[in-house]
Amino acid sequence: MRYFFRSRRFKIAATILATLIIISIIARIVGGIISPQSSILGSFIVPFQSAGRAVGNYFSDLAEKIDGNEKLTAENKELRDKVNELTSSLIDYDKAKQENEFLKQYLEIKDNNTDYQFEEALLIARDTDDPFGSFTLNKGSLHGVSLYDPVIEASGLVGYISQVGASYSKVTTILSPDISVAAFDRRTGDAGIIKGTVKSAEGGNTRIGNLSRSCTVAIGDYIVTSGGGVFPEGMLIGTVTEIGTDYNSAIYADLTPAVNLDELRDMMIITYFSGQQNLGGDKK
Protein backbone atom coordinates (compact mmCIF):
# COMPACT_ATOMS: atom_id res chain seq x y z
CA MET A 1 0.00 0.00 0.00
CA ARG A 2 2.93 2.31 0.66
CA TYR A 3 4.08 1.67 -2.85
CA PHE A 4 0.73 2.98 -4.13
CA PHE A 5 1.19 6.36 -2.46
CA ARG A 6 4.84 6.58 -3.46
CA SER A 7 4.23 5.60 -7.05
CA ARG A 8 4.71 8.10 -9.83
CA ARG A 9 1.22 7.45 -11.13
CA PHE A 10 -0.33 8.46 -7.83
CA LYS A 11 1.71 11.66 -7.67
CA ILE A 12 0.64 12.62 -11.17
CA ALA A 13 -3.01 11.82 -10.40
CA ALA A 14 -2.86 13.82 -7.15
CA THR A 15 -1.32 16.78 -8.96
CA ILE A 16 -3.99 16.72 -11.67
CA LEU A 17 -6.73 16.45 -9.06
CA ALA A 18 -5.31 19.31 -6.99
CA THR A 19 -5.01 21.49 -10.11
CA LEU A 20 -8.63 20.81 -11.07
CA ILE A 21 -9.77 21.66 -7.56
CA ILE A 22 -7.85 24.93 -7.44
CA ILE A 23 -9.09 25.99 -10.88
CA SER A 24 -12.68 25.12 -9.90
CA ILE A 25 -12.54 27.12 -6.71
CA ILE A 26 -10.96 30.13 -8.41
CA ALA A 27 -13.50 30.03 -11.26
CA ARG A 28 -16.34 29.87 -8.78
CA ILE A 29 -15.12 32.64 -6.50
CA VAL A 30 -14.01 35.04 -9.21
CA GLY A 31 -16.94 34.88 -11.59
CA GLY A 32 -19.50 32.27 -10.64
CA ILE A 33 -18.27 30.22 -13.57
CA ILE A 34 -18.89 26.52 -13.67
CA SER A 35 -15.66 24.54 -13.27
CA PRO A 36 -13.90 23.75 -16.56
CA GLN A 37 -14.13 19.98 -16.17
CA SER A 38 -17.88 20.15 -15.43
CA SER A 39 -18.36 22.61 -18.27
CA ILE A 40 -16.62 20.36 -20.79
CA LEU A 41 -18.38 17.19 -19.68
CA GLY A 42 -21.62 19.12 -19.31
CA SER A 43 -21.50 20.16 -22.97
CA PHE A 44 -21.82 16.47 -23.87
CA ILE A 45 -24.25 15.54 -21.13
CA VAL A 46 -26.70 18.48 -21.34
CA PRO A 47 -28.32 17.36 -24.64
CA PHE A 48 -28.98 13.96 -23.06
CA GLN A 49 -30.43 15.67 -20.00
CA SER A 50 -32.72 17.73 -22.23
CA ALA A 51 -33.87 14.59 -24.00
CA GLY A 52 -34.29 12.74 -20.71
CA ARG A 53 -36.27 15.63 -19.28
CA ALA A 54 -38.55 15.64 -22.32
CA VAL A 55 -39.15 11.91 -21.86
CA GLY A 56 -39.84 12.41 -18.18
CA ASN A 57 -42.27 15.26 -18.89
CA TYR A 58 -44.10 13.11 -21.48
CA PHE A 59 -44.66 10.27 -19.05
CA SER A 60 -45.56 12.70 -16.31
CA ASP A 61 -48.24 14.29 -18.52
CA LEU A 62 -49.49 10.85 -19.50
CA ALA A 63 -49.83 9.83 -15.88
CA GLU A 64 -51.67 13.06 -15.13
CA LYS A 65 -54.17 12.39 -17.92
CA ILE A 66 -54.84 8.92 -16.59
CA ASP A 67 -55.27 10.29 -13.08
CA GLY A 68 -57.29 13.19 -14.44
CA ASN A 69 -60.73 11.76 -13.93
CA GLU A 70 -60.14 10.75 -10.33
CA LYS A 71 -58.49 14.05 -9.60
CA LEU A 72 -61.33 16.01 -11.17
CA THR A 73 -63.88 14.29 -8.98
CA ALA A 74 -61.81 14.91 -5.85
CA GLU A 75 -61.15 18.48 -6.91
CA ASN A 76 -64.86 19.03 -7.50
CA LYS A 77 -65.72 17.92 -3.98
CA GLU A 78 -62.94 20.05 -2.55
CA LEU A 79 -64.13 23.09 -4.47
CA ARG A 80 -67.71 22.56 -3.30
CA ASP A 81 -66.51 22.48 0.30
CA LYS A 82 -64.50 25.62 -0.28
CA VAL A 83 -67.48 27.41 -1.78
CA ASN A 84 -69.54 26.52 1.28
CA GLU A 85 -66.84 27.89 3.54
CA LEU A 86 -66.62 31.11 1.60
CA THR A 87 -70.33 31.74 1.55
CA SER A 88 -70.64 31.13 5.28
CA SER A 89 -67.67 33.27 6.31
CA LEU A 90 -67.47 37.07 6.27
CA ILE A 91 -65.84 38.24 3.04
CA ASP A 92 -64.43 41.71 3.05
CA TYR A 93 -65.45 43.10 -0.33
CA ASP A 94 -63.00 46.02 -0.08
CA LYS A 95 -60.12 43.69 0.68
CA ALA A 96 -61.04 41.43 -2.25
CA LYS A 97 -61.34 44.45 -4.46
CA GLN A 98 -57.93 45.71 -3.28
CA GLU A 99 -56.36 42.35 -4.08
CA ASN A 100 -57.94 42.41 -7.49
CA GLU A 101 -56.57 45.87 -8.13
CA PHE A 102 -53.12 44.73 -7.01
CA LEU A 103 -53.22 41.80 -9.43
CA LYS A 104 -54.28 44.13 -12.20
CA GLN A 105 -51.40 46.48 -11.33
CA TYR A 106 -49.05 43.51 -11.31
CA LEU A 107 -50.14 42.57 -14.79
CA GLU A 108 -49.69 46.16 -15.82
CA ILE A 109 -46.15 46.08 -14.42
CA LYS A 110 -45.35 43.14 -16.62
CA ASP A 111 -46.93 44.74 -19.66
CA ASN A 112 -45.29 48.07 -19.04
CA ASN A 113 -41.73 46.84 -18.56
CA THR A 114 -40.65 47.14 -22.15
CA ASP A 115 -37.03 47.48 -20.98
CA TYR A 116 -36.96 43.82 -19.88
CA GLN A 117 -34.95 41.52 -22.07
CA PHE A 118 -35.90 37.88 -21.68
CA GLU A 119 -34.32 34.61 -22.58
CA GLU A 120 -36.64 31.65 -22.49
CA ALA A 121 -35.17 28.63 -20.75
CA LEU A 122 -36.10 25.06 -19.97
CA LEU A 123 -35.37 23.14 -16.79
CA ILE A 124 -33.23 20.15 -17.79
CA ALA A 125 -31.92 18.76 -14.52
CA ARG A 126 -32.23 19.09 -10.77
CA ASP A 127 -29.83 18.70 -7.90
CA THR A 128 -32.01 16.09 -6.21
CA ASP A 129 -29.86 16.16 -3.07
CA ASP A 130 -30.36 19.89 -2.55
CA PRO A 131 -33.19 20.67 -0.09
CA PHE A 132 -33.56 24.14 -1.60
CA GLY A 133 -34.51 22.86 -5.04
CA SER A 134 -31.70 24.22 -7.19
CA PHE A 135 -31.78 23.17 -10.84
CA THR A 136 -30.09 23.56 -14.22
CA LEU A 137 -31.40 25.50 -17.22
CA ASN A 138 -30.50 24.88 -20.84
CA LYS A 139 -29.21 28.40 -21.49
CA GLY A 140 -25.79 29.83 -20.68
CA SER A 141 -23.37 32.61 -21.49
CA LEU A 142 -23.64 31.90 -25.20
CA HIS A 143 -27.30 32.93 -24.97
CA GLY A 144 -26.61 36.16 -23.10
CA VAL A 145 -27.16 34.80 -19.61
CA SER A 146 -25.05 36.36 -16.85
CA LEU A 147 -24.41 35.70 -13.21
CA TYR A 148 -27.21 36.87 -10.89
CA ASP A 149 -29.76 37.30 -13.69
CA PRO A 150 -33.26 36.89 -12.18
CA VAL A 151 -35.28 33.85 -13.20
CA ILE A 152 -39.04 34.20 -13.28
CA GLU A 153 -42.10 32.22 -14.23
CA ALA A 154 -45.52 33.49 -15.21
CA SER A 155 -46.67 33.54 -11.60
CA GLY A 156 -43.64 35.00 -9.89
CA LEU A 157 -39.98 34.98 -8.94
CA VAL A 158 -38.15 31.67 -9.08
CA GLY A 159 -34.58 32.62 -8.15
CA TYR A 160 -31.37 33.81 -9.75
CA ILE A 161 -28.55 32.46 -11.88
CA SER A 162 -25.81 31.34 -9.49
CA GLN A 163 -23.38 29.68 -11.90
CA VAL A 164 -22.99 30.16 -15.63
CA GLY A 165 -21.57 27.79 -18.19
CA ALA A 166 -21.35 28.19 -21.93
CA SER A 167 -24.56 26.31 -22.73
CA TYR A 168 -26.23 25.84 -19.38
CA SER A 169 -26.54 27.57 -16.04
CA LYS A 170 -27.56 26.78 -12.50
CA VAL A 171 -30.33 28.47 -10.57
CA THR A 172 -30.53 29.11 -6.84
CA THR A 173 -34.17 29.31 -5.83
CA ILE A 174 -35.91 31.63 -3.40
CA LEU A 175 -35.95 28.79 -0.85
CA SER A 176 -32.18 28.98 -0.43
CA PRO A 177 -30.38 30.72 2.46
CA ASP A 178 -27.88 31.97 -0.14
CA ILE A 179 -30.47 34.29 -1.61
CA SER A 180 -30.94 37.74 -0.14
CA VAL A 181 -33.80 39.69 -1.71
CA ALA A 182 -35.08 43.03 -0.48
CA ALA A 183 -38.84 42.72 -0.37
CA PHE A 184 -41.90 44.34 1.12
CA ASP A 185 -45.52 43.61 1.95
CA ARG A 186 -47.64 44.96 -0.86
CA ARG A 187 -50.50 45.85 1.53
CA THR A 188 -48.68 47.35 4.51
CA GLY A 189 -45.36 48.43 3.03
CA ASP A 190 -43.39 46.58 5.72
CA ALA A 191 -39.93 45.80 4.37
CA GLY A 192 -37.70 42.83 5.04
CA ILE A 193 -35.17 40.46 3.51
CA ILE A 194 -36.05 37.18 1.85
CA LYS A 195 -33.69 34.48 3.04
CA GLY A 196 -34.61 30.82 3.10
CA THR A 197 -33.98 28.46 5.98
CA VAL A 198 -33.67 24.70 6.14
CA LYS A 199 -36.82 24.44 8.21
CA SER A 200 -38.96 26.59 5.92
CA ALA A 201 -37.54 24.88 2.81
CA GLU A 202 -38.63 21.48 4.13
CA GLY A 203 -42.19 22.74 3.90
CA GLY A 204 -41.59 24.23 0.46
CA ASN A 205 -41.61 27.75 1.89
CA THR A 206 -39.23 30.67 2.12
CA ARG A 207 -38.91 33.31 4.77
CA ILE A 208 -38.89 37.08 5.03
CA GLY A 209 -36.97 38.28 8.05
CA ASN A 210 -35.69 41.55 9.51
CA LEU A 211 -39.26 42.79 9.83
CA SER A 212 -39.74 45.69 12.19
CA ARG A 213 -41.36 45.02 15.55
CA SER A 214 -44.20 47.37 14.63
CA CYS A 215 -44.96 45.60 11.36
CA THR A 216 -48.56 44.73 10.54
CA VAL A 217 -47.93 41.85 8.15
CA ALA A 218 -50.85 39.45 8.06
CA ILE A 219 -51.44 35.96 6.71
CA GLY A 220 -52.47 36.13 3.08
CA ASP A 221 -50.44 39.25 2.30
CA TYR A 222 -48.49 39.38 -0.94
CA ILE A 223 -44.74 39.92 -0.72
CA VAL A 224 -42.98 41.50 -3.69
CA THR A 225 -39.43 42.56 -4.52
CA SER A 226 -38.36 46.08 -3.64
CA GLY A 227 -36.07 46.41 -6.65
CA GLY A 228 -33.01 48.60 -6.92
CA GLY A 229 -30.49 45.78 -7.20
CA VAL A 230 -30.28 42.33 -8.66
CA PHE A 231 -34.04 41.89 -8.91
CA PRO A 232 -36.50 44.25 -10.57
CA GLU A 233 -39.21 45.90 -8.53
CA GLY A 234 -42.62 44.39 -8.15
CA MET A 235 -41.82 40.72 -8.71
CA LEU A 236 -44.29 38.58 -6.77
CA ILE A 237 -42.44 36.27 -4.39
CA GLY A 238 -45.21 34.63 -2.40
CA THR A 239 -47.98 34.91 0.15
CA VAL A 240 -47.60 34.97 3.91
CA THR A 241 -48.66 31.73 5.59
CA GLU A 242 -47.12 32.02 9.04
CA ILE A 243 -45.74 34.76 11.25
CA GLY A 244 -43.39 34.18 14.15
CA THR A 245 -40.31 35.24 16.10
CA ASP A 246 -36.95 33.54 15.84
CA TYR A 247 -34.37 32.83 18.54
CA ASN A 248 -33.21 36.47 18.31
CA SER A 249 -36.78 37.67 18.96
CA ALA A 250 -36.81 39.10 15.44
CA ILE A 251 -40.10 38.89 13.56
CA TYR A 252 -40.27 36.77 10.44
CA ALA A 253 -42.96 35.54 8.08
CA ASP A 254 -42.95 32.30 6.17
CA LEU A 255 -44.12 32.57 2.59
CA THR A 256 -45.57 30.05 0.22
CA PRO A 257 -43.87 30.85 -3.09
CA ALA A 258 -46.10 32.11 -5.87
CA VAL A 259 -44.35 29.64 -8.15
CA ASN A 260 -44.74 25.88 -7.74
CA LEU A 261 -41.05 24.98 -7.58
CA ASP A 262 -41.73 21.24 -7.86
CA GLU A 263 -43.38 21.56 -11.26
CA LEU A 264 -41.16 24.02 -13.04
CA ARG A 265 -40.57 23.54 -16.72
CA ASP A 266 -40.44 26.69 -18.85
CA MET A 267 -39.05 29.87 -17.37
CA MET A 268 -37.76 33.26 -18.36
CA ILE A 269 -34.34 34.63 -17.52
CA ILE A 270 -34.30 38.43 -17.34
CA THR A 271 -31.01 39.15 -19.02
CA TYR A 272 -31.45 42.89 -18.74
CA PHE A 273 -33.71 45.44 -17.10
CA SER A 274 -33.26 49.12 -16.52
CA GLY A 275 -31.38 49.72 -13.31
CA GLN A 276 -30.07 46.17 -13.05
CA GLN A 277 -26.97 45.92 -10.95
CA ASN A 278 -24.47 43.16 -10.40
CA LEU A 279 -23.35 42.31 -6.89
CA GLY A 280 -20.60 44.91 -7.04
CA GLY A 281 -23.24 47.61 -7.39
CA ASP A 282 -22.25 48.44 -10.96
CA LYS A 283 -25.03 48.93 -13.44
CA LYS A 284 -25.22 46.62 -16.42
Binding site: L17, L20, I21, S24, I25, R28, I34, S35, Q37, S38, L41, G42, I45, V46, Q49, A125, R126, D127, D129, D130, F132, S134, F135, T136, S162, Q163, Y168, K170, T172, S176, D178
Partner: peptide
Protein backbone atom coordinates in the same frame (compact mmCIF):
# COMPACT_ATOMS: atom_id res chain seq x y z
CA UNK B 1 -17.80 13.42 -9.25
CA UNK B 2 -17.47 15.66 -12.28
CA UNK B 3 -20.85 14.45 -13.53
CA UNK B 4 -22.53 15.25 -10.24
CA UNK B 5 -20.86 18.67 -10.13
CA UNK B 6 -22.61 19.56 -13.39
CA UNK B 7 -25.96 19.81 -11.63
CA UNK B 8 -24.91 20.26 -8.03
CA UNK B 9 -25.82 23.49 -6.28
CA UNK B 10 -23.06 25.66 -4.85
CA UNK B 11 -20.77 22.78 -3.92
CA UNK B 12 -17.68 23.90 -5.84
CA UNK B 13 -15.91 20.63 -6.74
CA UNK B 14 -16.95 18.75 -3.62
CA UNK B 15 -18.31 15.77 -5.55
CA UNK B 16 -15.09 15.46 -7.57
CA UNK B 17 -13.02 15.18 -4.40
Amino acid sequence: GILLDITAADTYCFNLV
